[in-house]
């Protein structure tokens, strides 16, 4: 009913855009509703003595909205947010710089590529345990999330630089493009879709590894410590509620990166004039 109404009121292109947005939201709602139903069914099916470990969605969402306004929770969210954002930022920048170096220089490639591949393969828990000995608990999640993000972004940037179209590189030589223009527009810009995909994957990884580090090293104010405490007190509804918080924050980060990328694209187009 709503769709034809919107289509009638809007110009053709806008109505198509509105239709697409509504379709996207509907798809997301249907998908979420489906999985919540499965969750509810599973929680009803588990034996009573195990219900503690798999509370139903109603109880979890109740707990979520109960803890949401508390200053203790908000402070923890703020602190974790800052740590993960810092880790993501440091890891992304480091990955980009290293990717450019290894993509452009064979010496750097020989020296750094094996190390970054090893970092990518080492289990995150091993890093957390080892880094715990040397790094303060407040900084450890930042270090761990940046360590997980760096190889991912490095690989994407490195591949973009190495696989840059030879024809375009020749074009940049003939037309005497500056080093910056050649690197940014010919080598990186052509591979930006790949880099953005890596960044989006990095967001999830940064949250996963950062919160895991918080759970293991329990900084005073953090979502990880709250998860650890809730688990200790057998408040599994709170564990789930806090996990949902992390998922929501991660999705917001992803959304912001996508939006920033879109906005950048539009700004670049407008820069034409």
């Amino acid at each position: 009913m709503i769709l034809p109404l919107l289509a009638a009121k809007c110009p053709p292109m806008l109505s198509t855009m509105a239709n697409n947005s509504i379709k996207k939201v509907l798809k997301a709602v249907i998908s979420a509703a489906f999985w919540i139903l499965i969750w509810e069914a599973a929680s009803l099916l588990v034996p009573d003595d195990l219900k503690l470990f798999l509370p139903g969605p109603v109880l979890v969402f109740k707990t979520f909205f109960k803890i949401l306004p508390s200053s203790h929770f908000l402070k923890a969210v703020g602190a974790t947010l800052l740590r993960i954002f810092s880790g993501l930022l440091i890891g992304s920048l480091l990955g980009m710089v290293l990717g450019i170096f290894t993509g452009e220089s064979k010496i750097f490639d020989t020296l750094l590529s094996p190390a970054l591949k090893i970092i990518r393969a080492v289990p995150v828990v091993s890093f957390i345990i080892l880094a715990f000995l040397f790094i303060k608990v407040n900084r450890l999640p930042v270090f761990i999330s940046s360590l997980m993000v760096t190889p991912l972004v490095w690989q994407a940037v490195n591949d973009s630089v190495k696989n840059a179209d030879k024809n375009l590189i020749d074009m940049s030589r003939v037309f005497k493009l500056s080093k910056f223009k050649s690197l940014f527009y010919v080598k990186l810009y052509s591979g930006f879709d790949r880099i953005i995909t890596a960044l989006l994957s990095a967001v999830g990884l940064a949250w996963k590894s950062g919160v895991a580090a918080e759970v293991l090293c329990t900084p005073a104010v953090s979502i990880g410590k709250n998860i650890y405490k809730a688990k200790g007190n057998l408040n599994f509804d709170e564990v789930y509620a806090l996990t949902i918080t992390v998922v929501i924050l991660s999705l917001i980060f992803e959304y912001l990166i996508k939006a920033a990328w879109k906005k950048y694209g539009k700004a670049e187009e407008n820069k034409n004039d």
């Binding site: 074009m171 879709d193 670049e268 034409n272």
Partner: peptide
């Protein structure tokens, strides 16, 4: 060039202004 050699992600104007 025999092939166009443009950066696909950029607009026509951006490509022309690049050099």
């Amino acid at each position: 060039f025999q092939e166009d050699r443009f950066v696909n992600n950029l607009s026509l104007l951006q490509n022309i202004r690049l050099p």
